[in-house]
Design a protein around this nucleic acid. Sequence first.
DNA 1: GCAGTTAGTTGACTTAGTCAACTAAATGGG
DNA 2: CCCATTTAGTTGACTAAGTCAACTAACTGC
Lengths: 319, 319
Amino acid sequence: MAVIENAVAGTPKPVETAEAIDTIRDFNRFYTRQFGLLNQRFLGSPFTLTEVRVLYELARRTTSTATEIAGELSLDPGYLSRLLSKLERQHHLNRGRGEHDARQRPLSLTEGGIRLFKKLDQASSEAVASLIEGLSPAQVSELLAAMSTVRRRLSPVTAQADYHLRALRVGDIGWIIHRQGVLYAEEYGWDATYEALVAEILAHFVRHFDPNTENAWVAEQGGAVVGSIFLVRESGRIAKLRLLYVEPSARGLGIGRRLVRECIASAREKGYETLTLWTNDVLASARHIYQAEGFRLVKEERHHSFGRDLLGQNWELRL
Amino acid sequence: MAVIENAVAGTPKPVETAEAIDTIRDFNRFYTRQFGLLNQRFLGSPFTLTEVRVLYELARRTTSTATEIAGELSLDPGYLSRLLSKLERQHHLNRGRGEHDARQRPLSLTEGGIRLFKKLDQASSEAVASLIEGLSPAQVSELLAAMSTVRRRLSPVTAQADYHLRALRVGDIGWIIHRQGVLYAEEYGWDATYEALVAEILAHFVRHFDPNTENAWVAEQGGAVVGSIFLVRESGRIAKLRLLYVEPSARGLGIGRRLVRECIASAREKGYETLTLWTNDVLASARHIYQAEGFRLVKEERHHSFGRDLLGQNWELRL
DNA sequence: GCAGTTAGTTGACTTAGTCAACTAAATGGG
DNA sequence: CCCATTTAGTTGACTAAGTCAACTAACTGC
């Protein structure tokens, strides 16, 4: 068995939709069972889950009306009225009269109601704490990151979080090497020698980095790296644009073009005359960007690399 | 601003426990609201969630008893009896008589019951499909991986999934570079040049790999990389043990020692006389492993690397 | 001034269970 | 073999958590 397998590590392979659906439903059953226990007659208190939700909503606001609470929690107004009356009888709630609309009964928790709320809040926090107490800080962080991912992927798609560009940080080049290795294996079948090439380029970049003549940009979105590009000195007159990549999940947003433009602007700023780059013909999206930004094809050459027969292309831009 | 920041990318920093608890509860509220809709009077059907759960349980088994179902779903036996009677009246359920225990009523779905179950199963799958239809395959994979992480971290800690060792795969070296970069920055404050060194070593390893004289092992646990080690040829008589690392979350399980032993065994098998390694004195756990396996300290030398003053150590093992 | 709408309340009811007593069958000790 | 105890399942009575609709008082806009 070869020591370097062609299977891809890290990100799991895209799976069949049916399989994904089954996995999500199975997770849902697990999660509902796990947290369902937290939602029963609330954690040993004499209050039902609905009552606790009402308390939470009242605690979140300084003052509110029954209509607001009913709307927020999708509750029957008659039912809510009874719940509020119970809280009032127990001296947890103040019900006023609207200044400008006598129909309204402005609601606010009493001191006792605030104390009750804090007690229930504490119990809930302790319940969660007991779930994670066996986890190391790193595992808790991993859990939170995973929850953030679940939430981001299951939330209604509004405007995706804007991306921004930032400088390189520790950990970035390993991640970029990893993602390029995985993505080009998945998308084009390139083997581990491509990953090794990327590693070599980036190792050299970091070890010989000169901020007067070189630069790097990382695109970040929702705290995750979604793309990158590097400006590398070739000579006093010539710079190279290297290793443009954009995550598939973030394509179509103009990130690639933005990265290329930043690179070009920086090359100009640093006084280069020519910006060159080497790519392969299969990287069609990148090529379109290069062409659009004025790069010209100066040389093509067939080669066998990364386990494949490829057509390498050299492009140049006069600055 | 330097182009390479000292902030660490990738894994979020460990957070305060209180903050983690709040985040988890917030996620819980989000999740319950999102999937709570799926659990209401079941997806437009005339069945309640409890009835559907009973159907699922009956469908999972060829035959079962009321006591089994009640136990599995934590249902009141009297209530279950009524639910089963309803299903029987609707010709979805067969209720037999126990062969060896006449008290028992063996239960099995009728043809109609199986059709009903499949219909509900289909509706549930369609509901989930509609949640993820806007996601790309990569995003679905990311979601599934995140759910797997949430589940793994929130499941009761039984015996942690055993780890196993495997060969390198595409994507591994980038990941290892990334993790070493991040971990040594967090634990020892080493800067990006350490990450670059690791990248260079691994790039060279992959590009000049000779399976007759070199080897690599990746420790994997629950589908995640949790450690690795490399055997590299120095000369015909001398090999090097390089880049031993174990994830903090997986330490204490003997993974490091296991990796070192595999490396030593392989070095012997390939006919080397000496196995050498270079480490730094701050890596105490690793040093203890090396000493325990018979390595001897042959040289120490102060140096300034990775942004720090360090004491390098060369160790050797006669094979 | 008044018809229509809204905020909130209350009465009657439905639904989803819970609790306990019951019958029939099985088990095990004397 | 007898009998006390336990178990599988059923049924009656009840509770709890809501739903539905009619109601009162107050507001709005023509």
